[in-house]
Design a protein around this nucleic acid. Structure first.
Lengths: 209, 209, 209, 209
DNA sequence: CATGAATGAGATTTCATTCAT
DNA sequence: GATGAATGAAATCTCATTCAT
């Protein structure tokens, strides 16, 4: 008697809008995107979109959540898969490097923009802090595992190494966005960082680097 | 083409507006600031401000230019002052660290925001590239001097080291803005980076650390 | 044209909606109430409510009709019950006074609002006129009965007295709504009006007041 | 050097908008009037009107203030002009009666609508109370003057008489609006009220009525 | 009968920018 | 040069109403 499509219909509609929003965000950036833009991209009516999201901000948060879930999956794989922790770390570098040429066409720069604007508005401070903490813990747990297994003998706290890793990546992304891979020397930077981290961790029993 | 008296009047008027704009930018961020806001902060008339700047973007560029001049002065001092290049580098770390607690109350985050948005709009690519190149060359020239003097024997290209240094700083700033000094572990990160760079440069004739 | 079972189902559904509408009207006023509000208050679907009423206006008219029926019953009781017509009139005052403290929580102010807005839209002029005429005739018939029985010897047309009575009540209600019982001096006003009407009617065979 | 028209220009502009708003209010009522309507009636731009008023509510309050000033002037005249207070009171009746036929084309019904809606929103309660109090005091002071001069010997408190007078007028206005002069029996009602008040005041030394 | 997702018109509000004085 | 009133485009958001299921 009743439609009852509800739940899954709702989800698919949200997904549709989210995908449209992503495209617009990537094209125009977060701040420049209006509800109207998303409405037109999604091919829905004005009110139709409001049924699911009341602002571009809500959409953004949904997009971030989704991305976080995927990231977590990737990381779990990483964590379980590798015997050598340094190999796992190198894979992490690889993950963060691959696709870096198309960085501008991904949602990543939108995330950066959003985070800066959030800080501006004093919004989502708690949320952002939690996300950072989570990312940090991913990396820290990897490093600690290496320490436990005697593979790493770090000369500074592993947390500092992980934080440095994250800072570097954020900064490098900005550079790549503004100057491109080549001018920003992305690959050379990554190599330098990799060596730095191997040094800081004092990676053991590895054939020469 | 003979403005005579105007010249200095013009400059002082521009300076007044620039200062007002800075205050508003720091308070609200770049994107959120409207001409109206600056007009009101400066206590001038709408038309009055337009005589000197036709957009907040022009103001921002003027602010950046001013800051760059100051930075260059600082760097020149640094470059000439130190016998040991590693000491000079440490001083550079120091410069970038001091005042980091008040980062949020400075124009720095506005610069970051502006750069990201500029990339968005595809504006100022050339300009941004030049600024980056200039900053990079500051650091590279320092490092090269060290190489020439036999103080550094870098295991990777000095340019990569300099770029990594810059990336790290940009990223760390974002972290500090969002999480604060403590949560972002700023000081620990800086220490880790310093050690990394000393390693990459293979700093000579220093008492072992 | 043979609704069979539906009839009573229809009525109960309408009654349910009407009660919900009343609650919303009393809470928010007539003009401010949207179909959406009633739909939510009734806990029905949007389309569901539209099956019975296509606007808040229709609901309002239904509410008024219902109220009028109750009023008529009250009046009939009044008309038949009293030997002394002046006693009946006093009872009428009483009816209009009791509950005046809770006036704001009743549907009465909504009626006033609706009448004014109806006049605005040029709607329901006929309907409103009929309702007024009916109320007027209630009172006039009471007064005439008194004249016929020699209890009243009015010095102005009884119709004028009845109209004045109605005008006064409407105005007093507005005052009470805005200022409350005390500030509007409701009880004192009513006393003054009662004396006035006794004077205008020249009520006979009553112990002098 | 500077325009300096400011002050008076501002006032005339406000007056222009107010007059336009009045016309729209009278035509459509308060609630139904949007900023857009006023903008169009005034022949200004959207933003232009917002420079002076941010809502129809602000306009309404300005209109009420203006009307109150005029009323006060009228009353002052009344108060000073008459030897016989009863003559003054009759003049007051006259003032409230004249133009009653065109009542629908005046701002009066808009005031009534506004007051009812204000009560709805719980807005302006203080303001409304003050206005009522002021009107009341006008009438009370007239009556008291008559008492002092021995012209009135009221059988109920003069305040109650004044309040009854006001209530009656408000209610009668509503009646006239909905039914017109004739059907509402406005003139007959007024005559009845006048006699009532003369009775309540026990007006002395007057040739028969 | 009943549902509730979808539509789209329309109201509010803000500001960049111009221009007569 | 300087002013600030005026313009109007554009963004946000809400609901009455419809209609496929």
């Amino acid at each position: 008697m009743a439609p009852k499509v509800s739940e899954e219909h709702r989800d698919s509609k949200r997904a549709l809008i989210i995908e449209a929003a992503k495209r617009v965000f990537i094209r125009q950036g977060y701040e420049r995107t209006t509800m109207k833009d998303v409405v037109e991209e999604a091919g829905l009516s004005r009110g139709g979109v409001y049924l699911y999201f009341s602002s571009t901000e809500e959409m953004m948060l949904a997009i971030i959540d989704e991305a976080d879930k995927l990231n977590f999956r990737d990381f779990t794989l990483l964590y379980e898969q590798y015997g050598s922790l340094w190999k796992a770390l190198e894979q992490l570098f690889e993950l963060n490097t691959q696709g870096i040429e198309q960085l501008a066409q991904t949602i990543v720069p939108v995330f950066i923009e959003f985070h800066i604007l959030s800080w501006r508005n004093g919004k989502h401070a708690q949320y952002t802090a939690e996300r950072y903490e989570r990312s940090l813990q991913y990396v820290v747990s990897l490093l600690n595992k290496g320490v436990e297994q005697g593979e790493f003998r770090p000369i500074v706290p592993v947390t500092a190494i992980a934080q440095m890793f994250i800072s570097f990546h954020d900064g490098m992304f900005i550079g790549v966005l503004q100057l491109g891979m080549k001018k920003s020397g992305a690959l050379e930077q990554i190599d330098a960082l990799k060596r730095s981290i191997r040094y800081l961790l004092q990676v053991q029993n590895e054939e020469r680097g």
